[in-house]
């Protein structure tokens, strides 16, 4: 297992989020056995892997939605289950895969629910709450829509409302569970840009993603999982190779630098032509002839 950068001294400089020998699963079904990993502080970490590999399960354990049956998830050096629930909620927030908006709720009301960890019986709406909600609405460009019913919004706008709620929670660590699923491509990138802004503002982002190109483009640290285990970790450039894509996802693909960002980009090979005319690249680091025309074809069909 590759070690992440910046963790040379395990005692003093341990990251804020550490999984120590944890077995995670549902009821009797174990997903990950004796898993250990850590999230580098201040990183934009993407967890990738095929369906059912345990990436969302791991994220849910990090968010203490799921308690490990053995081992621990540590937050700032202490078992996450040993904190008061609100205390955790001020340090780490989760954007779940699916949340339910109550019937007839309006945008600002839903975003304001992100302030729950700061509220108590007698203080339900302090000036700081209102400021945080206003800032979250502005950052997600929802200020104009704040009085709308959530039901009236488009899918992309609705997802932004949930992101705004997480932002209003004002946590230094944000866990995002497949945030771009079900969105069209423009809204996917809009959302990823938003997360990059949050990262630039100093937040640690942990994001479960399906799209390898998005992961490579936005994350600075990747965790690759398969069958409940961590296959490898590291920077996108080091991790994303044709060999890895084939061994982890069972997909033969061409990995070439993205012409826009230079980060690795994955283009699946055509299984038919690949069998007839094997064009599998031998060396993933070099540019290949077939790639530019392919990409042009893609763009022209848009």
């Amino acid at each position: 297992m590759t070690d992440s950068p910046g963790t040379a001294d395990p005692a003093a400089g341990r990251p804020r989020v550490v999984v120590d020998d944890a077995t995670i699963g549902y009821d009797k079904r174990t997903i990950s056995e004796r898993l250990s990993m850590e999230i580098p502080d201040g990183s934009f970490t993407a967890i990738i892997g095929p369906n059912g590999c345990g990436k969302s399960t791991l994220l849910r354990a990090l968010a203490r939605v799921l308690a490990p049956s053995s081992g621990t998830v540590l937050l700032d050096g202490k078992a996450i289950g040993a904190y008061k629930s609100k205390e955790v909620a001020r340090r780490l927030g989760l954007l779940p895969q699916s949340s339910l908006a109550p019937d007839g709720i309006r945008v600002a009301d839903l975003v304001a629910r992100g302030r729950a960890p700061y509220q108590n019986l007698i203080h339900q709406w302090r000036p700081s709450d209102e400021d945080a909600v206003a800032a979250a609405l502005a950052a997600t460009r929802l200020t104009e829509l704040s009085g709308w019913l959530v039901d009236e919004l488009s899918g992309g706008q609705r997802q932004r409302v949930w992101v705004a709620m997480l932002l209003a929670q004002d946590t230094p660590i944000m866990l995002l569970d497949e945030p771009t699923t079900f969105l069209d491509i423009a809204h996917q990138y809009e959302l990823m840009e938003l997360f990059r802004d949050f990262h630039d503002q100093g937040k640690t982002i942990v994001c479960v993603l399906h799209d390898l190109n998005q992961a490579a483009r936005y994350a600075d640290h990747l965790i690759v999982m398969r069958d409940g285990r961590i296959v490898t970790t590291g920077t996108p450039r080091d991790v994303i190779t044709a060999e890895l894509v084939e061994s982890v996802f069972g997909l033969r693909a061409l990995v070439a630098p993205d012409p826009v960002t230079g980060t690795p980009s994955v283009t699946p090979l055509d299984p038919r032509t690949a069998t007839v005319h094997p064009v599998e690249p031998r060396d993933p680091d070099t540019d290949h002839e077939p790639s530019p025309p392919r990409r042009q074809e893609k763009e022209s069909t848009r």
Binding site: D109, I122, E130, D131, L149
Partner: peptide
Amino acid sequence: MSAGRVAFGYRTRTLRSRWVSGRV
């Protein structure tokens, strides 16, 4: 109070004192 007021889309009343705060 700085940042700004939030428009909730319906009429609300905010109660704020040193001891309690709330919005209805």
